[in-house]
């Protein structure tokens, strides 16, 4: 079997979430788990690793920010290819309470996490802090309402605008006020600096290093541990990650770019 061959979809739905971010909805059940990723592609355009945005066994959703060659062209593609799922997932089943901290385009795998926890009646065990650069960069308006029905949700922006009445400030500022009990887990995903600061804040707030998990972004070509691009010290982010236990990787000097 050729593991590089994607499954192709001609029928799919494209939903714009903001001026640079869109969701691709594929008519296929997601065998993967929250935190895992797939290689999304289109013939002639190329492949990119994208986290699954829906929960285990839901229809596949991928929310993508247009940043370069592949991600800017996928919205115009007539065929979407997908292979996976790959990598590790958020270990939410092992914990009583969970605080998820997401910055920017880090939010899709947290939506997936929410899906899964709600699906087993554990939505109330989740707390979400989600931050974006500006109000217009905040995505998932509908989903955010769903989260808020179950979970404690804090939304914040780095910089507001005249119509913005919500929180202003980095996600890190809200960690110490978290309602999640300190034996719980913290799941962190976002830009490198945001993750670094969020780890520091979580430790400061009393969470334990072995209960903090990070989703690390690295350049990925293969997704299956053979192209050598995604290493984080002795680990490959595509097979040992992308979700890493902080205590297992904190010794690595290249952890945060």
């Amino acid at each position: 079997m050729n593991s590089y061959l994607p499954e192709y979809f001609k029928e799919f739905e494209l939903i714009w979430e903001s001026r640079d971010t869109y969701t691709i909805h594929l008519p296929k059940e997601n065998p993967g788990k929250a935190g895992q990723f797939y290689m999304l592609s289109s013939p002639g355009i190329g492949e990119a690793p994208i986290s699954v945005a829906s929960g285990h066994l839901r229809e596949m959703l991928f929310t993508i920010r247009s940043v370069g060659t592949v991600t800017s062209k996928l919205p115009d593609a007539r065929v979407i290819g997908v292979r996976g799922p790959y990598g590790t997932s958020w270990p939410w089943e092992r914990y009583g309470k969970i605080l998820a901290v997401a910055g920017g385009i880090g939010i899709p795998p947290i939506n997936s996490l929410f899906d899964e926890m709600v699906g087993t009646g554990r939505g109330k065990d989740l707390e979400i802090i989600y931050g974006a650069r500006s109000p217009s960069d905040l995505i998932y308006h509908k989903q955010r309402k769903e989260w808020a029905k179950m979970a404690n949700v804090i939304i914040t922006v780095d910089k507001g605008d005249p119509n913005w009445k919500g929180n202003v400030g980095f996600v890190t500022q809200f960690i110490s006020k978290s309602e999640t009990d300190r034996d719980g887990a913290v799941f962190i995903i976002g830009p490198p600096l945001m993750m670094k600061n969020s780890v520091a804040e979580s430790l400061e707030a009393g969470f334990r290093p072995e209960n903090i998990y990070l989703s690390l972004e690295r350049r990925m070509e293969c997704g299956i541990g053979v192209c050598g691009h995604c290493n984080v010290g002795e680990f490959y982010a595509c097979e040992d990650g992308p979700i890493f236990q902080y205590s297992a990787v904190k010794h690595l000097p290249e952890l945060f770019l």
């Binding site: 590089y4 013939p43 002639g44 355009i45 190329g46 070509e221 192209c227 050598g228």
Partner: peptide
């Protein structure tokens, strides 16, 4: 040294 790159070219995905 086993590292490789993957990119699309014509009808192929080239390693």
């Amino acid at each position: 040294c086993y590292c490789f790159d993957l990119f699309d070219q014509d009808d192929g995905r080239i390693r």
